[in-house]
Design a binder for these strands. Structure first.
Length: 286
DNA sequence: CCTAGAACCTGCGAGC
DNA sequence: TGCTCGCAGGTTCTAG
């Protein structure tokens, strides 16, 4: 389940293994993987051929490969199960291989987009003056972006008539946070997921943001140790998930602060994990 | 404009 | 053994 830290690990891998390489050919093996490329898979493959990639960039869960000296970029989103792999050309195709890019050099490796559930995909888009692909102009800066506007974030929370976890997952307010890191940050902040955002004081929202950054940085430190290899890989199964989660996936296990069993609640067609003692639900208001 | 909820997709494991 | 069903959840679209 790639969220910001996992996508950043992939970006670093691409930076090392793909920057500066030119595309010799592109194969689209599943049309759904390029559905955001509205002109279709054939157009995608034809336009990519011959392009040379600059260093990859990321905002939230999106990453993109800008094209050298041209105002467009190959945009990637991993969805739920997407992977970008740099593989030897002779490696057997993965079961869920969706797109293959071969390069015009002698390194012998190719870039593969593999995605079991095809929520993710690749597409080619124009980039604006800021270098951002046009279709993600609505995605907010993420909490690790030096230009993230903390004051604007707080004001937006105060203005919204919604609850705090909904707000954290709203990529137009803050990007890169998914279900896992939302639950982790709320646990660290002792906030219940149904707390109305309008009730958050400035110190509380600042504390929440600090915890979001801390949990993401911790995950990045773990996941980031594996990027220095031939294979650019992401699958959400980094060591961080085995050892370090405090709330997510821990139903029935003791809260690491107070020992109360962690609870799971159905929430928005998914789950929220929380400590019923540390994270008290808000009082119902009329 | 704002917010809530459904749809998209496939593999896996539990239960019968 | 083999079937059904719930679950995983980021993004986009639609309804209200």
């Amino acid at each position: 389940m790639p969220e910001l830290p996992e996508v950043e690990v992939v970006r670093r891998g691409l930076e090392r293994w793909v920057t500066g390489r030119s595309v010799a050919s592109a194969d689209v093996l599943h049309p759904r993987a390029v559905r955001r490329h509205l002109a279709g898979g054939e157009d995608f493959a034809r336009r990519l051929t011959g392009l040379r990639f600059a260093a990859p960039l990321r905002r939230g869960k999106y990453l993109w490969l800008p094209v050298d000296d041209a105002p467009f970029a190959v945009l990637a989103h991993l969805g739920m199960s997407g992977q970008l792999l740099v593989q030897p050309g002779e490696a057997p195709d993965e079961k869920h291989l969706r797109v293959r890019l071969r390069f015009a050099d002698e390194l012998g490796t190719e870039l593969r987009f593999v995605d079991q559930r095809t929520f993710g995909g690749l597409s080619l888009h124009d980039t604006g003056p800021d270098g951002l692909p046009d279709v993600i102009a609505h995605i907010a800066r993420d909490p690790l972006d030096p230009l993230f506007d903390e004051d604007a974030f707080h004001q937006a929370l105060r203005r919204r008539r919604t609850t705090v976890k909904r707000a954290l997952l709203d990529q137009s307010l803050i990007s890169g946070v998914g279900n896992i890191y939302a639950d982790e940050a709320l646990w660290r902040s002792r906030l219940h997921y149904d707390r109305p955002t309008a009730t958050l004081t400035r110190p509380r929202s600042a504390e929440l943001l600090t915890h979001i950054r801390a949990v993401m940085t911790a995950a990045l430190d773990v996941g980031g140790t594996s990027f220095d290899s031939l294979y650019v890989n992401v699958n959400g199964e980094s060591g961080y998930f085995d050892r370090s989660l405090d709330a997510y996936g821990r139903e029935g296990e003791p809260c690491r602060r107070c020992g109360t069993p962690i609870r799971r609640r159905p929430w928005m067609n998914r789950s929220s994990y929380f400590c019923p003692r540390c994270q008290r639900p808000p009082r119902a208001t009329g």
